[in-house]
Design a protein around this nucleic acid. Structure first.
Lengths: 128, 128
DNA sequence: TGACATCCAATGCACGTGCATGTAAGTTTC
DNA sequence: GAAACTTACATGCACGTGCATTGGATGTCA
């Protein structure tokens, strides 16, 4: 019987929508209010911090793009915002001068470390 | 120990992000390509169809707003788009002339019925 | 070497969204 | 019944996003 299966996926999707929206809205609000960071911006800092082991590490734009649900152009502008805020630095790669290396600045590392508990708290609230 | 719990919620959130993004992108693409409908627009048609039992039924904007993850202004514009496409009609309520009654037009009902299998198909693909 | 395809990132543009505000209609208080 | 408040919806504006394009660097093949 297929009707039950239809209802199942509908309910599952409905629940996914609920969790996603409520959680991401609160993440956005809390990160913005407490740390002046958008959710995409926080996630860029997070990926950089994890894949580079703190300030000074490097990652390419393409690597980030593959890990995030964000288009190439949106990622480019997100990084531009972070750069203007002094949280991230771009450096052209010596071996492939098409590519950018991205580095967390000390300020960026600091901001991320400060924001991470907020992020965790919201997730625990909604998913814990 | 809290580290395990932290990892749990992170993994859960990560999975929610993955399911949400992949599913909603494909929903958006398929509905747009096959039926010239955005996801929000489809969901308005869906709510109207369900809460009104097909064409000619009525619902207020405020009712829809409560059921959807969309701001009042975004909903207003979504309904405007649907109205311009001839899929929904606005009628001012006799008893409260601030409020709108929304009605699915026959074309709107038809479009929704045509689009629903597409919607179900994508959901089954991703969640089934 | 020269011509062409491919790749990386930035940018112009259109679009959907949220916030703040405006307008009109209903409600309450005196 | 008038004034103050509240509610329902629309609209101006700013912002983040995706698509398409551009510009510059790299790779490939004859």
């Amino acid at each position: 019987m297929e009707a039950g299966s239809d209802n199942d996926v509908c309910a599952k999707w409905s629940e996914t929508l609920r969790v996603y929206h409520t959680t991401s809205v609160e993440l956005e609000n809390e990160l913005q209010a407490r740390h002046d960071l958008g959710l995409s911006e926080f996630e860029v800092l997070s990926k950089l911090s994890k894949s580079c082991g703190g300030a000074g590490g490097k990652a390419r734009m393409k690597e980030l793009e593959a890990e995030m649900y964000l288009s190439q152009s949106a990622l480019s502008r997100t990084v531009t915002r972070l750069e203007k805020a002094g949280l991230v630095a771009r450096a052209t790669c010596d071996f492939d001068r098409r590519a950018n290396f991205l580095m967390l600045t000390p300020a960026g590392q600091e901001r991320f470390v400060a924001a991470q508990p907020t992020h965790r708290g919201v997730l625990l609230n909604h998913l814990g």
